[in-house]
Amino acid sequence: MEALTLLKTRNSAAKLCAPGPKDEDLEEIFAAASRAPDHSRLRPWRFLVVRGESLSALGELFATAAMQRNRELSEADCQRFRLQPLRAPLILVVIACIKDHPKVPVIEQQLSAGCAAHGALLAAEALGYAAIWRTGENAFDPVVHKGLGLESHEEISGFLYMGTREGSAKPLPEMLPTDFMKEWR
């Protein structure tokens, strides 16, 4: 796919099915992600790959965290959290690894992690897959952070659900540059 076409047509896919990216595809996805803007070459991000049986384990972690947030959660709601990771054959957990650096503020490191995530999304699309970037309560939950082995200087930038698009892409409205751009004088 031509680069500008990819950039202008990538679209989140809420419904995903198998197959998901294979190991060789993940190598390409991570190579693309590694080209994120990165002041001082800190590489302030890393990825966890969740697939197979680990998706169910992540669902259990989500349910445990939800029960910690709300002790009166119904069993149906707990089950909803358990099933969330099963919406895709593969999830990349994008983790911002914030470093203490005199020239690179936290926001730049968080944005670099976001750019790495976006690079992964674009690469997945270029390889014929589809994806959606999700956050929600679980991205910010200390129980989830601990369960995924995050350290105190790390935070979740998002969960990238990846697989094959089920159905057709939703139409996105065209935006004109004048919708979001203004000349500064």
Rank of each mutant, 00 (worst) to 15 (best):
F140H: 13
M175D: 02
L83A: 09
H118L: 11
R134K: 14
K15F: 10
I156Y: 06
P21D: 03
I29P: 00
F180N: 10
S56T: 11
K146V: 15
A65P: 06
L176F: 07
M162H: 12
P105M: 01
A130W: 00
V94N: 10
S112A: 15
S54D: 15
G52K: 04
F159C: 05
S152C: 14
C97I: 14
G59Y: 01
P19T: 00
A116G: 11
V93L: 00
I29E: 08
H118E: 13
E53M: 01
L121P: 03
A126G: 08
I29N: 05
A131Q: 05
C78E: 12
G149K: 08
A169H: 11
P173C: 06
F62I: 06
L172F: 02
T135Q: 10
D25L: 00
P21M: 05
Q84P: 00
F81I: 04
A126S: 06
W45P: 11
R35W: 09
R10H: 05
G128P: 07
G163C: 04
E166I: 02
E183I: 06
E125R: 04
E75A: 12
L90T: 03
S12D: 05
V49H: 05
E125C: 02
V93D: 03
A120F: 00
K182F: 06
N11S: 07
S157G: 14
R165T: 09
E108Q: 11
P102D: 04
R43S: 05
L4M: 15
L150C: 10
F30L: 05
G136L: 12
I95C: 02
A3D: 12
P171S: 07
R10N: 08
A66N: 05
